[in-house]
Design a protein around this nucleic acid. Structure first.
Length: 112
DNA sequence: TGTTTGACCACGG
DNA sequence: GCCGTGGCCAAAC
């Protein structure tokens, strides 16, 4: 079957290691979609298996925190994984940034 | 079936 | 360096 946009986003998001973060744009670019907005939209359908809290915007801000059970849950989950959050923003975001294109490679494909 | 809406990003002023 | 605007594409209405 042809994976939908959500499934691609979910699959990539699941690859994000604990304690690391990535951006909507990075995922969109990796998938060759060009529409980073869709990544956020897809994660809006928050699925339990997907660590959506590891996805932030290009500034490292927790722009999607309000879509969690509580607005602070996203920060709490990240801090629990060792990612410090300050003022709704990932501390040392550039250092913790995880690039799917660099880590998975261009030949990565949707599993299943 | 056409319009509106997004957890965004890049660019120009 | 901040603010406004356009563009991107798929789902919901």
């Amino acid at each position: 079957m042809i994976p939908t946009y959500h499934q691609l986003v979910y699959a990539v998001t699941r690859q994000v290691p604990k304690g690391r973060v990535t951006t909507y744009g990075a995922i969109a670019d990796f998938l060759g979609l060009g529409a980073s907005r869709m990544v956020g939209w897809a994660l809006n359908n928050r699925v339990d298996d997907v660590p959506a809290h590891r996805v932030v915007n290009r500034k490292g801000e927790l722009s999607g925190r309000h879509k969690f059970a509580t607005p602070t849950l996203m920060a709490e989950l990240l801090e629990y994984e060792g990612v410090k959050i300050e003022n709704d923003q990932v501390v040392e975001f550039e250092r913790l940034f995880w690039s799917p294109a660099a880590e998975l490679g261009d030949d990565w494909e949707f599993p299943g």
